[in-house]
Write a protein that binds this DNA or RNA. Structure first.
Length: 593
RNA sequence: GCGGGUGUAGCUCAAUGGUAGAGCGCUAGUCUUCCAAACUAGUUACGAGGGUUCGAUUCCCUUCACCCGCUCCA
């Protein structure tokens, strides 16, 4: 439930965002454009700092990750291979029972008796659920099976022992509203053309349709071989990218949280398949050993790597001022996982409007590289000399057991997708043959761990987290509320405000400008000589500037022992200290980097 | 996409069928020796389009944007 208070907070943040030039509505003078936002001067600095922090942490400070900057428009085949074209382009309905998705116009028309229910009562708790539901029963089938389906539907939504309410039977002819496989009602058809479409070249016809990328990840997969061949990295290694992505969301909402043009910071970290780890290391490290808290090891399989990256990402957020406690980790349940994922953790931030995803860290297996290998016809695998040698030394029993495990896993996956046991087993055997033939030669498709963060969401989280109000009451009993944005110095848009104590004393102004010129090449500064000093402090507090420097008469030598020192004021405490101008860079730089 | 609400200055709000005020902010000046001081001057608005009307910011319609709830978010 959105309490008025949280809504109020969001309104204050939106208002501050505009007032101080963090975030503006796109095209505001023309009435704005739903789902598009611009960053003003302070927002642009903040965003740049956040991206720089990510780029530095994830790429520059690591030996095992390299960068990429790919185009926004790519070959349309990429989106075929990734599955985006199919799932993103037509009106779709979902089965309310199995969540299976259908193209609305391709559902086989069904006729029979529709059993409509108005809801269900929980015979255990006594609670009632008033969601209508309907099941279509082909002529001649016993009504009991419709009720069974309906009970399953309500059970799925938390009614443990449902008693159906308001049953009403109605004849239906040629309806496309029901799942032909189980009779369950489908959701309303919804447009799924979530990709922005455009045309490459001057002629707008269907032969040159292209899409603005709905995620940055696919570019990394598509360029995987080029990067791997040129960057002198060996698996495990990662490719990181920051860039714009576009989704024609049905409902952009919550300020910049879900917008149609947004920016992602994504890492695709490529690792060896667990089978290769077993061949090379004899065993795959156990997650419960908590090794993932330390430095990467050669015997890490995908589960440890996955945990490792979750931990790394949390540490990143801590380093820019979002404490661990501000997050919830949500481990997606197996049935919630997207088709490509083996596991996925959402890092949720407690926004005023609800606890929502800031970053997803998915274990994508070798799904994407396999897809691109299939669709492009280009080999995406890598070759590992050590792996080939290690395989050669393996005894036959070990090889057989590796294969048996692989077949068992693939069979289980096949069954999950709805294949029959025989089909699944046959497919698994075929896959195993290909996989192990390659493995024996030291070849494999890397698997992937994908930490994928939304920049704009993060900006919003940082704004929410930094926002605070301080109310002071003066001697006259007049109270006043001031806003302070408590940004971590590393990401604060302006690092230091520089103020001559008085504006009408040329010596002070001159000295202040000298300090400004000293610091300016090294950090974002703001020089301000307008109004009283307190006002200038307050203005910088509201902008989130962590430090203020005041040049006063002591700086000029009024007290000789204080010559060439300035007041350093700390935003969060208001505390002041005296620092020599010569020491400023040495003091400030470590705090902002 | 559906339902409800809102839209007046940079921000927060007011008034009005006869074109609008305040507070804060912002700019300039005077002044000011460390936390939004004071004074003076200045600055800026009826989301857009159409209709009714002698006249619309006000009433009506459409549209756009934002907020809330549902929905959606592979």
């Amino acid at each position: 439930m959105a309490e008025p208070k949280t809504n109020e907070l969001m309104e204050k943040i939106v208002s501050l965002g505009k007032r101080r030039g963090f975030i503006f509505q796109s095209s505001e003078i023309y009435g704005g454009l739903n789902g598009f936002w611009d960053y003003g001067p302070l927002g642009a600095e903040l965003k740049r700092n956040v991206k720089d922090a990510w780029w530095s942490t994830m790429i520059r400070l690591r030996d095992d990750v390299v960068g990429l900057e790919a185009t926004i428009i790519m070959h349309p085949q990429i989106w075929k291979a990734s599955g985006h074209v199919d799932t993103f382009s037509d009106p779709m309905c979902d089965c309310l029972l199995t969540r299976k998705r259908f193209r609305a116009d391709q559902v086989d028309p069904q006729s029979g008796n529709a059993y409509n229910f108005t809801g269900a009562r929980d015979t255990v708790s006594g609670g009632e659920m008033n969601e209508p539901y309907s099941v279509l029963l082909p002529a001649g089938k016993p009504p009991e099976s419709a009720r069974k389906t309906a009970m399953a539907y309500y059970a799925l939504r938390g009614v443990t022992q449902p008693e159906l309410l308001g049953e009403r039977v109605e004849a239906v002819v040629d309806s496309q509203r029901y799942n032909p496989e189980n009779g369950s009602l489908l959701t309303e058809p919804r447009p799924f053309n979530l990709m922005f479409k455009t045309y490459v070249g001057p002629v707008a016809d269907e032969d040159n349709v292209a899409y603005l990328r709905p995620e940055t990840a696919q570019a990394i997969f598509a360029q995987f071989k080029n990067v791997a061949d040129t960057c002198r990295q060996k698996v495990p290694f990662g490719i990181g990218q920051i860039g714009k992505a576009f989704r024609n969301e049905v409902t952009p909402r919550n300020y910049i949280f879900r917008s149609r043009e947004f920016e992602q910071m994504e890492l695709e970290f490529f690792i060896k398949p667990d089978e290769a780890i077993e061949v090379l290391s004899g065993t795959v490290a156990n997650v419960s050993a908590e090794a993932w808290k330390g430095e990467p090891q050669a015997d890490w399989g995908w589960e440890v790597w996955h945990k490792y990256w979750v931990e790394q990402r949390v540490r990143f957020y801590e380093a820019i001022g979002l404490p661990r406690t501000a997050f919830e980790e949500y481990w997606q349940k197996p049935e919630e996982l997207a088709h490509y994922a083996r596991a996925c953790v959402d890092l949720l931030y407690k926004f005023p409007f609800g606890t929502q995803e800031l970053e997803g860290i998915a274990a994508r297996s070798d799904f994407d590289l396999t897809q691109h290998e299939t669709h492009s016809g280009k080999a995406m695998g890598v070759f590992d000399e050590e792996l080939r040698a290690a395989w050669g030394k393996l005894d036959e029993a070990r090889k057989a057991s590796l294969r048996a495990n692989y077949v068992a896993a693939k069979t289980a996956a096949g069954l999950k997708k709805g294949a029959t046991e025989a089909e699944a087993a046959k497919q698994a055997e075929a896959l195993a043959t290909i996989f192990f033939e390659k493995l024996a030669k030291g070849q494999y498709l890397p698997h992937v761990i994908e930490p994928s963060a939304g920049v704009d969401r993060l900006i919003l989280a940082l704004l929410c987290h930094a926002y605070s109000e301080v109310t002071t009451t003066d001697e006259k009993g007049k109270s006043e509320t001031r806003v302070i944005l408590r940004f971590h110095p590393r990401i604060a848009p302006i690092k230091v405000g520089i103020f001559p104590l008085l504006k009408n004393k040329p010596e002070l102004v001159k000295k202040a400008m000298a300090v400004r010129d000293l610091l300016r090449p090294h950090m974002a500064i703001y020089y301000d000589d307008g109004g009283a000093i307190g006002r200038r402090y307050a203005r910088q507090d509201e902008a989130g500037t962590p430090f203020g420097l005041t040049i006063d008469f002591d700086t000029l030598g009024e007290k000789p022992e204080l010559l060439d020192t300035v007041t350093l004021r700390h935003r969060d405490t208001g505390a002041q200290e005296r620092v020599a101008i010569a020491d400023l860079l040495g003091r400030l730089l470590p705090l902002i980097r």
